[in-house]
Structures are given as structure tokens and as C-alpha cells.
Design a protein around this nucleic acid. Structure first.
Length: 404
RNA sequence: GCUGGAGUUGAGCAAUUGGUUAGCUCCGCAGACUGUAAAUCUGCCGCCUUUGGCUAUGUAGGUUCGAGUCCUAUCUCCAGCA
């Protein structure tokens, strides 16, 4: 059997799978939206899904039992961080990421490109990047090949191609700069693909003596860049569509309202039968709706857990800061309609107390809630697609969340 | 009762020999956070008509060009002694 068959994307329902008897109306299910199942050697992910950010091989503040309980179906770790500590070779010796961290569901790794490009004094050349460790200042080097190798050592089920995400935020957003880094991203993507094929052959055809660690296929997603220029995004999407990646990811696109048209454009070009991940998105409920509407299958974002640790918590009526004085004596549940452990067992007043006292439990209970909120929202969106109630669900949810 | 020490904004402290700070850290109040150098960061935190102005250093006086700093009285607290 072809090792690549271990990774599969199955679409169980899509907006345009039904026979369109009439012209689309505002109530018609969005044509690009789909519900599916990503099959990996470590199990499956029902999509749309929100993937838990586990940068340093853990979801900050939570045990994996808690991550399971809140309903997350997959986690995404970071190659840059794991190279620095504990080292990817160590993770390989531990039996791979899943074994190392004791989590037996599907995992992703980000390539490290995003983190490295965010560091000060990064030197980018055609071959790769030179940067300094943020921990001890060591001068380090990463190339598309070395990122692939590191990711194969880590051994997550889904890898990201090593990209050059420049052209948003504080980086140089000028057209020449974005064009240049996009071209570099494409060049590197081809090198990632080549290295991927080598490593896949090497690992999957090896006869491991450790039956406990059967070599498994590790998929590779290409990462679309192009900044905020529609024609560059289109070019990038066409480039990736012409390459045989296992899936695709959208990088450097962080404003669901502003980028909606661009996202639509990109996803209409990408092959419909492969999964699409929106990197770093999911801080806002509208991110998930907009993404799904235009064909995104998976999301990841650090915001839910980070904001949780900082006391900013989701409710169906918008985000609240639990540290505000008005919650000190609020004995109601954080979100009375939420099914998470925190909301089922604790009051706002208790959470407010834990935050004011700086107890570690505050961050944990808050993270359980916020992570549940987005994970569950993705699940509800999935259900709404299967029920053909997406449009109404979206309208109702967003109207209430962003009322005020 | 005597002797010594101390009293500065909710708390704890700063402020050269009397010489331009309502100064710091907590607490408190609010905001931010999107492929996690983030259980972090930012702003406010005496009063006001707030790109500025005013009043503060237990209380009441005094010396001085100038007092949180010196003097007198007084109140409170702490330590030691009776």
C-alpha cells in the first residue's frame, strides 16, 4: 500500500454537492463550505475543526486529559520552539511527538518559518534563514530541507512547508517585498516537496525493529502567501494548486473582514479535494464562519488560550474581562449556555477570585472554557453544514456575539 | 511617667549637608492580545476647568529667599526603663 494512503481527506458534505435547482439566494448554503473527515495515522479529525495550539508540546495550562475533555481533536506544535527545546532528535528518540507528549490524536507541526521571521535580526537569503535563538542567542540556520527533516524527527501527522511569511503586520508590506518573499516561498515549497518525498520514502520503507513505533506517513501542506495583493494571492494559489501537496494552508491573512474576498479567491483556485488550513486564525468567532464559508477545513490560533490566561473570556454575548470589578460578586456561570467543565462547575465570582489571587487554576479553568468555546463553535458549524442551517446559524450567532 | 525612635497618597518605601518629583513598587481601575520570546504588555491610580494648574508629607505654630528635612507645642504608634 502506498504510505500516502494513510493520510486522506474525505468530504462528507459540501455546499455545492447538492444539485442546485435554483439560482443561489442569500439563504443558500455557501458553495465552498464543506464538512469532512481528515484521516491520519493517529486518528481522524472531523472538519471544520479548531486545532489546539500546542507550540511547546502542550496546550498551555492544560493536561491532555483536559484537552480531550473539552473536545479538541488535534493539536499543532511548533518546529522552531521544539528545535530549541527539547530538540527534535530527542523527540524522535522518545518515539515521536505523540508518544513524547502523551497525546494519541492527530498532530500538526508548523514549519517554524513564522516564528523565525518574527525574530529580530533575521537574515533571509535564497537558500534559507539565519537567526538567533531567543533563549540563548545561539546563531542558527534553517532551510526548507532542515525544516522538513526536523518535522520528520518530531513526527507529527501533518507538516507545514517552510515558508517566508513577510508582508503583513510589522513586516515590509510593500508590493516588491511581498512579491520577493512569495517567490521565495514558492521556491522553498518545491524544495520542501522534494525533501518530503525523500524522507517519506526513507521512513516509510524502513524496517523498524520497534514495532511500537511503526513508521507512518507524515503529510505536507503547502502554505500560500501573497500579502494583501489579490493578484499575488492568486498567483500563489495557482502555484500551489499545481503542486502535489497533501493539503494547503493560508498564511499571513489575519483580518477575516478585510481578507474575505481574497480568501474566497484563493480557495476557489486550490484543489477542492484536499484539506485547507487557515494558519493562526480563530481569535474571533467570525473568523471561523468566514473561513468555513469560503472552504477552510481547519484552524489554529493561540488567542483562545492566551486570552484565557489574561482573563479575557468568550461568552455568547461577546468577550468579557473576568478581572473587571463587576464580576467579583457575580455568582452566575461564566456562560450559562456553555457546556464546558468550567461553566458547568464554577461561577464568574470564583473565576474573578482566582484571577485576582493569581492562582494557576484561573488560567487553566479559563483556558478550558475559551478552548472549548472555539472548538465547540467549529463543531456547531460542522453540524449546521450537515443540517443545511449554516446561514441562519451564522447570522444568529454573530448578531448576538457582536451585538452592543 | 521618663528616655529614645517613627509618623509622606489604600499598603510598603524614596526624596544629597534645608535647594526644582506627588517619585518607585504593590494593591486598585480599565484596555490590548490572531501559524505563543505573552499566566504577558499598555494606560490610569491626591484634586481640578488636565498639552496645563492647584494642594500635600500626623496636627498647630515658628525660623528661612526656600522646610518632608531645622525649632516649639501637641497627638498617635513602637522600643527600652520605672
Amino acid at each position: 500500500m502506498n504510505p500516502r494512503d494513510e493520510f486522506k481527506f474525505e468530504i462528507v458534505h459540501s455546499g455545492n454537492s447538492g444539485v442546485a435547482k435554483t439560482a443561489p439566494t442569500p439563504e443558500s448554503p455557501p458553495a465552498q463550505a464543506r464538512a469532512g473527515i481528515i484521516h491520519t495515522p493517529h486518528g481522524q479529525i472531523e472538519t471544520p475543526a479548531f486545532v489546539a495550539a500546542s507550540t511547546l508540546a502542550n496546550v498551555k495550562g492544560l493536561t491532555w486529559a483536559q484537552v480531550d475533555q473539552l473536545g479538541a481533536e488535534a493539536a499543532l506544535a511548533n518546529t522552531y520552539h521544539l528545535i530549541l527545546q527539547p530538540g527534535t532528535e530527542l523527540i524522535e528518540r522518545a518515539g515521536g511527538l505523540s508518544k513524547f507528549m502523551g497525546y494519541n490524536r492527530p498532530t500538526f507541526t508548523d514549519s517554524g518559518g513564522f516564528q523565525i521571521m518574527s525574530l529580530p535580526n533575521v537574515k533571509i537569503d535564497d537558500d534559507g534563514v539565519t537567526f538567533r535563538s531567543h533563549i540563548n542567542g545561539d546563531i542558527l540556520r534553517m532551510t526548507p530541507e532542515s525544516s522538513m527533516q526536523a518535522q520528520w524527527q518530531i513526527g507529527a501527522d501533518i507538516h507545514m512547508a517552510f515558508d517566508c511569511p513577510v508582508g503583513y503586520g510589522d513586516t515590509d508590506t510593500s508590493r516588491p517585498s511581498v512579491l520577493k518573499t512569495m517567490k521565495l516561498t514558492h521556491d522553498w515549497a518545491d524544495r520542501c516537496l522534494e525533501e518530503q518525498q525523500k524522507l517519506a520514502k526513507l521512513v516509510c520503507e524502513s524496517e523498524s525493529e520497534d514495532t511500537d513505533r511503526r513508521p507512518t506517513y507524515q503529510a505536507l501542506f503547502g502554505v500560500i502567501q501573497g500579502g494583501e495583493f489579490d493578484d499575488l494571492r492568486e498567483e500563489s494559489a495557482r502555484f500551489f494548486a499545481s503542486r502535489d501537496f497533501d493539503g494547503y494552508a493560508i498564511g499571513g491573512m489575519y483580518d477575516a473582514i478585510k481578507c474575505e474576498g481574497t480568501l474566497k479567491l484563493v480557495n476557489e483556485i486550490l484543489p477542492g479535494d484536499k484539506p485547507r488550513h487557515w494558519l493562526g486564525m480563530g481569535a474571533e468567532p467570525r473568523d471561523l464562519f468566514v473561513g468555513v464559508e469560503h472552504g477552510i477545513d481547519t484552524f489554529d490560533c493561540v488567542a483562545p488560550t492566551r486570552q484565557a490566561r489574561n482573563g479575557s473570556l468568550y461568552t455568547r454575548d461577546g468577550r468579557i474581562n473576568i478581572k473587571n470589578s463587576k464580576y467579583r460578586e457575580d455568582f452566575s456561570a461564566l456562560d450559562p449556555e456553555c457546556g464546558c467543565y468550567t461553566c458547568q462547575n464554577h461561577t464568574r465570582a470564583y473565576l474573578a477570585h482566582l484571577f485576582r489571587s493569581r492562582e494557576l487554576t484561573a488560567g487553566a479553568l479559563a483556558s478550558i472554557h475559551n478552548e472549548y468555546f472555539v472548538v465547540n463553535l467549529a463543531k456547531q458549524i460542522r453540524k449546521s453544514l450537515l443540517d443545511d442551517t449554516f446561514v441562519k446559524f451564522k447570522q444568529d450567532f454573530l448578531a448576538r456575539y457582536y451585538a452592543k
